[in-house]
Simulated scan of single mutants.
Amino acid sequence: MDVARKSVSAGASARMDSALNQSMMQLLDHVEYRLITGGEDLEAIYRLRYNSYRRSGMCGPIAGGMFEDRWDNLPNSYRFGVYFDGHLVSTLRLHHLTREHPYSPSVDAYPEILAERLARGETFIDGTRFATDPDLAPAPGVLPFLTLRICMVAYCYFRQTAMFIPIKLEHSAFYARFFSAKQMTEGKSFPGVIPPLALFEISGNEENFHRILDRLPFFRSTPMEQRLMFGNPAINRLTPLSIVPTAKFFRAAA
């Protein structure tokens, strides 16, 4: 009986994944990623952060209605806006952490996890300041996938030891299911936000890397897309660099 239940459950999960992949591939035709370093687009993602965080109770009132912090302009920082049919729908910031550039909010918040490993030469991606505008979502539940695809492009480019994401514990099931994320800390104070966040690690080993991409092929990307996103932070560029998702071209480019 248990074997039968597991088989039915696995079949249902596979059908859900197939429907998700088909839907996401279609949605990506309308998506544009922008690597943002200045100008009006930068103000727009700061406003989106603030509005999203205020709505969810992540932060209190901020004069000017924009949420930015001292980690935004670091040389190892990448700020992205996700645009659907030309409208900003979400934003995410990544820091590429190395022994030479060990700077990010998670390093400050969880030194007991990150400091020693960075000193040993491990490398990480730190994903923070994830914010969405649900009123502009093209369909329920898709914005996390459209946005976190940026993390998988970073995986393909940097091949880092692991990715770290500080999140509310109520979101842990999503990251565990799709990324095999493991909880590394209890919820604790995190810079700039009100609720406690726990640090979750997504392993960068080849087995986990390929498992995620095989299960969710819309996370795939060509080397050209990877280079456009992460080849040069160009922190002083005023005009954002626009990048079109390349998942549907991956098979032809491989």
Rank of each mutant, 00 (worst) to 15 (best):
M224A: 11
I235T: 15
A234P: 01
P217C: 08
F249N: 03
K248C: 04
E206Q: 14
L216C: 07
T222H: 07
E201N: 08
E201R: 14
E201I: 05
F209R: 13
L238F: 13
F209N: 07
F218S: 01
K248A: 13
L216F: 15
T246I: 03
M224V: 11
R227T: 09
A234I: 01
Q226A: 15
R220W: 01
F219Y: 15
N208S: 10
N232F: 00
R220N: 04
R227V: 07
H210G: 00
N208Y: 05
R237C: 04
N208L: 05
I235Y: 02
E206V: 15
R215D: 01
D214F: 03
L228M: 15
T239A: 13
L241M: 13
T239M: 11
E201Y: 05
F249A: 09
S221G: 06
F230Y: 14
M229N: 05
R215A: 12
T246C: 03
L228Q: 14
F250L: 07
F219V: 11
P245A: 04
Q226D: 13
R237W: 00
A252P: 00
P233R: 11
R237E: 14
S242A: 15
K248F: 02
A198Q: 10
A252W: 03
M229P: 04
P223T: 00
F249T: 00
E206F: 07
